[in-house]
């Protein structure tokens, strides 16, 4: 699961108010480089919630240093982002691309911030199936 997908996901367990950002407990991370398309990242900018992205990066940064320090170092992202100036800045777009597309959470858990329900991630696939009483 990419951090881009995490950015868009929310928990729908019964009794959830907002349901995002989901906390990440990563047991295994992978780095898989993909081709960088500045236009696509630019078009995503208005849609992503930058705070959630920073939050997600904060959650995995330790694990990333532990496991992936040989292949990649997480770039430092600015505290806030301005869409119009960010779309001009190719370096920043590249950093965002790396964070959103190339880091995969392969094993671990997603945790609903309101109810604490844990969604397990196996082989990069989060299990979002709810029990009968949670619908």
């Amino acid at each position: 699961m990419r951090l881009l997908t995490h950015n868009y996901m929310q928990s729908t367990v019964k009794g959830t108010e907002k349901g995002y950002p989901l906390k990440i407990e990563a047991d295994k991370l992978e780095f898989d480089q993909s081709p960088f398309d500045p236009d696509f990242v630019r078009s995503l900018l208005p849609k992503i919630d930058y705070e959630i992205l920073l939050f997600a990066v904060g959650q995995i940064v330790e694990k990333c240093e532990e496991d992936l320090s040989a292949v990649v170092t997480l770039p430092k992202l600015p505290e806030t982002i301005d869409i119009s100036s960010a779309s001009e800045d190719e370096e920043l777009l590249k950093k965002l691309h790396l964070v959103m597309f190339d880091i995969h959470v392969v094993e671990g858990h997603l945790i609903c911030p309101d109810t604490g329900r844990r969604f397990r991630i196996i082989m990069g696939i989060p299990n979002m199936i709810l029990h009968e009483d949670e619908v």
């Binding site: 868009y8 996901m9 349901g19 199936i129 709810l130």
Partner: peptide
Amino acid sequence: DLCYADMGQGMFFRNGI
């Protein structure tokens, strides 16, 4: 990206994605 989910339980994404 893949997700293991039941479509009858609804989608689990934020609005306007």
